Simulated scan of single mutants.
Amino acid sequence: MADRLSLLLETRPWLLADGATGTNLYNMGLAPGEAPDLWNETNPGKVLDLHKAMVASGADLILTNSFGANRSRLRLSNAVDKVAALNHRAASLAREAADAAGREVLVAGSMGPTGELMAPMGRLTEADATAMFTEQAEALKAGGADLLWIETISAVEELRAAAQAARAVDLPWCGMMSFEPGGRTMMGVTPMQLASLVERLRRPPVAYGANCGTGPTELLQAVAGFAAAGSERPMIAKPNAGVPRYHDDGLIYDATPSVMAEFAVLARDLGVRLIGGCCGTTPQHLAAMRDALDQQPRGPRPTAETISKRMDHAMAQAEE
């Protein structure tokens, strides 16, 4: 039986994923250095409010507040014993917001990198990483996640481990790597290598792509690399809203809602099926993206030069 994401993609040319979790919670009062995942227990009302704001802005898919809720990262907060509880609560909060939407909204269980280097450069083995991701995935599934959203990965071995976890808990999944301005991940993986990798996995993702990074222009160039690889698998683009800076005791990013709206249209015209935002992307950004996608007619596939020119123009207009 086809999963809910695949069924939705059969009826829609594109879906809007949500915006940032951590940076929005920071602007809602999360203390510097505090793990956002802990708010699932200490401030569940604010987490739920953020999910509802994303849904109200037009999101078709929302991510659970569990990006760093794996055993390795929670050890830094002395919360290793809370892996199951925090992930289950993260999924149930997102499920509550999705079920109250009055339309179909999917819940994606967010799983970020472990924070450790994979062997042989580090000490984390692929088997240990698989066990770590599986522990997280089991709780996300039990809490109501429709799929797993494996994001901001830089190493092939870690993506493979997360994919094995998705297979172990029998959930569909999506996978994203984060690419640097030079066109590779921190561990040297290129977009074309990722496109090749996902097709070789025993259980390939429903969709794959890129998230985070240094902004929409660079991420679109990475996505163009997926398209050049010839893969017919649905693509994902979820960039940061530009570069961060502090303003009035809060954290804002330099890509305005209008800039992210231009990104969204370019991503759609490039053939991306799941479009959203990562760090710095607020509900206001998301609403502008949704309006642009709904109202602007589809255009020709943009070239790399077109992407650069249109994004530069959007940034220049935003600065005026």
Rank of each mutant, 00 (worst) to 15 (best):
C278D: 12
G209V: 11
G29F: 05
A168C: 02
I150E: 02
G112P: 03
W14T: 06
A31C: 09
D146T: 03
C278V: 09
M28C: 08
E199L: 02
M315A: 06
V265L: 13
G225S: 10
L159G: 15
N43I: 03
S92R: 04
P191I: 06
D254P: 07
P257K: 06
P44Q: 11
N40R: 09
R298F: 10
A316S: 13
L38I: 02
V265N: 04
D248Q: 10
A261N: 06
A84G: 05
M132G: 02
A56F: 08
I236W: 06
A139I: 08
R12S: 11
P239A: 08
N70T: 08
Q296L: 13
E41M: 12
N27K: 04
A35K: 03
G188E: 01
D254I: 05
A224W: 03
D18L: 04
V169Q: 05
F179P: 00
D170Y: 00
V198M: 04
A20W: 00
T125S: 13
A224K: 07
P297A: 14
G242F: 03
P191L: 07
H285A: 05
G122P: 07
P297I: 12
G19P: 05
H313G: 01
L48D: 00
A108T: 10
A288K: 12
R268W: 07
L74Q: 12
M289L: 10
G175D: 09
A227M: 13
M186G: 00
Q317R: 04
S77V: 11
Q296P: 01
V259H: 04
W149K: 03
R73P: 04
E180S: 08
I275E: 13
L74T: 12
G276N: 09
P113Q: 08
G175I: 04
T64I: 01
E157Q: 14
A100V: 09
V80S: 15
H247G: 02
R75L: 01
D294M: 10
L201N: 06
R202H: 07
G144S: 12
Q284K: 15
R71Y: 12
M192Q: 14
Q284L: 14
L220C: 12
S110E: 01
V189S: 01
M260K: 12
A162L: 09
L194S: 07
M1R: 11
L286W: 14
L8W: 07
G188N: 02
L8I: 04
S92Q: 11
A129P: 02
L124N: 00
L38T: 00
D249A: 08
R12P: 00
E305S: 13
L220G: 14
W149A: 14
R233C: 10
W173D: 05
A166K: 11
L38C: 07
A129M: 07
F263G: 11
I307V: 15
D291Q: 15
M235E: 10
H51L: 00
A101I: 07
C279Q: 08
